[in-house]
Every structure is written in C-alpha cells, then in structure tokens.
C-alpha cells in the first residue's frame, strides 16, 4: 500500500511538529525542575556567605568569586588572540598554506573534548609551568577552549562589515591599520562582543577542564595563584557526593539563570548588530539611487 501524497504530507508534518515540541518540552522540564527546587535556596546570604562543611552549609560566595576570576582570566587572554587571528584571517591573508593550517587548527580546537583540555592544562600549566592548581591555570586552559569561538564569531563580524567602508576609508588616504582600527573595528564591535559573551557562558558552564586545573578549594581566593572551585565544579561536587541537595539545586538554579541572562544579552547584541548592518546597507542603497 502506498500512502497518498496528501496523507504522507500530513504524517510527516505531524512528526516534525511533534519532534520540535518534544525538544521544547524537555528543555522546559529541565529548567522548571531545577528552578522549582533551587529558587527557594537562593537568598542574599546564600550568595554572600562562604561555604561551610564542604558546602553542606553556608553559601557559595567563594565559588562565585572563583568563577568570575577564572572567566576573567580566560576572556582577557583569549580575546586579543582570537580577535587578532580573526583580523588576520579576514583582512590580511591572501590564502595559502599557513592560512589553511590556521583554519584547520582553530576548527580542531573547537572539537577537542574539555577533558582533554583538562589533561593538557594539568600537565602544561599546573605541572610544567609550575602554576599549580590555580585560578591562573584554570583561566589559561579555558582561554584555549574559548579561542575558537572568539575567532569564528569575530571573523564573521569583521567579514560582515561592507567592503565599501574600507574602500571609502582607503580613498580618504587612510592606511590599512587606520582603516581596521577606526572603521572596521567600530562597525564589527557588536558582533565581536557577542562572541565574547558566548565565551563567558561557556566558561561559566565548564567543569571537566577546571576540575583538573583550578583545584577545588572553597576558601576565598587571595591571588591568581590561589586554587579555587567554580560554581559548576562546586555544583558537581555537591551533587556527586550527595553533600547538600538543597545547596546543589540552589547552585544549579543560579547557573541556569546566569546562562539565561548571558544568552539573552548575546541575542540582543546580535540582533542590534544585524539590524545596524541592515540600516547601513539601506543607506548605501539609497545613495546609489
């Protein structure tokens, strides 16, 4: 028996709609479950008190500070490297073997599992460079992990700047560097920032690489060489060792809220970037007519 075109259309359509709704339902189930169990724990004192008894009591102030510092180190290191690479790939290179290898490397870095980054960070930063389990080791490891994201988003943003901008700048006598610095960067900055924000999200969410590089100290860090435990690692420890379900849910809820804010922020920036580009193109078209 062969299905008629109409009924196979109907069946396919309903399967596809069902799949989409299933995904939304699963995400909703996870988020609502965690928030419902975790929000009651979230309070001012939970956010500002240092954990006690391995996290059984007290708050998560030191993991919050640890997360902020590790993420800051990662972003501060990866941004110049990533944006610089993007500028080279979008503005300078004329193709060739080295460019191919750069692209291959960046794409490969994007696929390497975080646990392998953890192994590398442990052997290189913690042991070989002697940085120990520390904010610095963790941050440097994360910097490598987020590098491909920053390269890709920055390159897209730079390539999105219309060529006429550059031509106008050159025709006014500006050099290449002046053009990049004064024309291309300002036009691409929202797209670049969007990539950086996404990288912050990835840093906040990371666990496997940090377990092996940043340590698991719950003390308030006093320097970049101090070990720390980020929120995600703290949550993992609380959940796995069954220390305090309430505090685990609370930490998880805070993580989800943070990721939500980060995603919304990145989206707002990206939409503004796209609509700006649209406006500029319109303006350009208008002049031509």
């Amino acid at each position: 028996m062969k299905l008629s075109a109409k009924s196979s259309e109907k069946i396919a359509k309903s399967i596809i709609w069902a799949a989409a709704m299933l995904v939304v339902a699963v995400l909703a189930a996870i988020v609502i479950y965690i928030l419902a169990k975790g929000l009651p724990t979230l309070s001012w004192s939970f956010l500002t008190e240092i954990p006690e008894g391995g996290g059984a009591a007290g708050g998560i102030a030191s993991p919050i500070v640890g997360t902020v510092l590790v993420t800051a180190v990662a972003v501060l290191i990866a941004t110049p490297l990533g944006v610089g690479t993007a500028v080279y790939l979008a503005e300078y290179t004329k193709g060739g073997a080295i460019t191919k290898i750069i692209r291959f490397s960046a794409e490969s870095l994007a696929g390497i599992p975080s646990i392998v980054y953890g192994l590398f960070g442990f052997i290189f930063f913690v042991m070989y460079l002697g940085l120990g389990w520390s904010i610095l080791s963790g941050g440097l490891t994360l910097a490598i992990m987020i590098l491909p994201t920053i390269i890709r988003t920055s390159e897209e943003a730079i390539r999105g700047v219309p060529g006429s901008y550059r031509e106008t700048s050159f025709s006014l006598g500006a050099t290449k560097w002046q053009t990049i610095y004064k024309v291309v960067f300002p036009a691409a900055i929202q797209g670049i920032t969007n990539g950086i924000i996404l990288s912050v999200g990835r840093s906040v969410a990371e666990t496997a690489a940090l377990v092996l590089t940043a340590g698991s100290s719950l003390r308030m860090p006093t320097s970049l060489f101090a070990p720390t435990r980020t929120m995600a690692v703290h949550f993992y420890t609380l959940a796995m060792e069954d220390i305090s379900p309430a505090n685990a849910f609370g930490t998880a809820a805070l993580l989800i809220i943070l990721i939500f804010i980060i995603n919304v922020g990145a989206n707002i920036l990206l939409n503004r970037f796209i609509s700006n580009k649209g406006k500029k193109k319109e303006a350009k078209g208008g002049k031509r007519n």
Binding site: V31, G201, A205, A248, N263
Partner: peptide, 12 residues
Amino acid sequence: LLAGIPSVVYGF
C-alpha cells in the same frame, strides 16, 4: 539555551 546549559546540570 539548550546549548548553553552546563553539562553538569544535564547530568544531574
């Protein structure tokens, strides 16, 4: 959002 949620949260 699905992509951004920490893997430990999924595991949990």
